[in-house]
Write a protein that binds this DNA or RNA. Sequence first.
DNA 1: CTTCCACGGGAACACTGGGGTG
DNA 2: CACCCCAGTGTTCCCGTGGAAG
Length: 407
Amino acid sequence: MDNLFEDLIKEKGGRIFANKEVLRPTYIPENLPHRNEQIKNLADILSAALRGETPSNIMIYGKTGTGKTATVKYVSKELEAMGQKMGSKCSMVYINSEVFDTQYRVFAYLARIFNKHVPMIGWPTDMVYSEFKAGVDAENWCVIVILDEVDKLVSKGDNALYNLSRINSELKNARLSLIGISNDLTFTELLDQRVRSSLGEEEIIFPPYNAAQLQDILSERAEKAFNESVLEDSVIPLCAAFAAQEHGDARRALDLLRVSGEIAERSGSEKVKEEHVRLASERIEANRIEEVVKTLPLQSKIVLNSIILLSKERNKKRFSSGEVYNMYRRSCNFLGMEPLTQRRVTDLVSELDILGLINAVIVSKGRYGRTKEIALSVPISSVQPVLLEDYKLKALANIKVKAQMTL
DNA sequence: CTTCCACGGGAACACTGGGGTG
DNA sequence: CACCCCAGTGTTCCCGTGGAAG
């Protein structure tokens, strides 16, 4: 008797992919095209660790998908391996500051890595800090802390960076240096002067890839990821071109290639064709919007929904913040909720703007004051269904009709 | 030059969920 | 157990400010 999954597994071994994992963003290739300069630079600086010195702190800049994280992880793997061979112990700790985004959480995580027991909340921060310090100092070694997306840490006004950068003077055995990774070139301006000079001892820039370089990257991965000659010739250049428009984001390009392959596979095609890439591009964008909208906090959803209601009700596209706020209040009344203040709602609007769901510009209307003009920047059809999935917003599906009648 | 309105920065506050201590 | 301490988050309150119409 056939197992339910039998056919599916056979499918999977399928015609298109040889190894899909290679295309995922978590995969670290052993060869990073067009990043030799950065790798060498990084290795140069870090080699100090192997000579028993303390490497300079490093700041790494580059837009998303320019290979920053992959490069750093690759170099750190090599360094740790070499350290073991030479008997001078090195350890790299990778922290994604988007996950550990406050000073407490960073120190608590670090302390845990060095075998100290620290609860994730509850203690005073300085206690966590000394636990971590004791943990690091327990051995004679060089610890390199990698802070990915370090701008997320700074924006919360934390002095985690300050504490980290001066910790060396308090350590007796261990040495510690920092690698900060940021995709915002201007973020050091927010830093305290002392931190800025200490963290920016060395700087490495990762420029965006151009279309040709993206093609190299894709070709190399495609060789492992796909079976032979399943890709039509135009597929890779097209993926590269799409991603090059998005400021040379290699992650985007790889996503696009993977999804194209999946679509081709599912449609039972022998080859990945140009049309699959175009479909994939649309799908990825739609998924992005859906994902963003779904994870919005409730109040933001109501605000967004208010803008949608306005767009439907009137025949125009842009609305003043006053109009949006009124509609928002009405929605809240319908839902039996206390509306937030106008001040708070302007913040929510700004967040929606940053997420790219709406477009907001400040306009001065002279004698009649200043306002923000707000417009939806994604199709209603791709947003509203997702919004109404939220059971708390279900009621708003009806408000629309009533509101129209009472107006 | 005045005037008007919301923008947006910053402080203060409330609340949460977890500590340690007696 | 009751109690207070602490970091973190979302919110409100207060207020100085930008900038074109009048």
